[in-house]
């Protein structure tokens, strides 16, 4: 569905379904990896990220919400 190539601080992401390229920074690759296991609420997402040790102290639920909104705008995640 996606192809990711780490460049430096940023990761280049090719989204096959839209044909679009995105340059993203953590925690976005972690969020996408966590959601690849299936849909989740915000709370479930936090748990998944913590289980994988992928959540930084600065990634508060409020900040994760902001990232999710941005990802929704570009179509990488969507609400059920």
């Amino acid at each position: 569905m996606r192809r990711a190539v780490p460049l430096d601080a940023l990761t280049a992401l090719y989204h096959r379904r839209s044909g679009q390229t995105h340059l993203v920074t953590e925690p976005v690759p972690a969020i996408l990896a966590a959601l690849a296991h299936g849909p989740a609420t915000l709370a479930e997402l936090v748990v998944r990220l913590e289980l994988q040790g992928l959540v930084a102290d600065t990634d508060t639920p409020a900040r994760l919400r902001e990232r999710l909104d941005e990802l929704e705008t570009i179509g990488l995640v969507w609400r059920l």
Partner: peptide, 16 residues
Amino acid sequence: QHNRTTALWESEMARR
């Protein structure tokens, strides 16, 4: 192929 990808993506975004 590119055309098809972008067209179907556009319809998916309209669906959302």
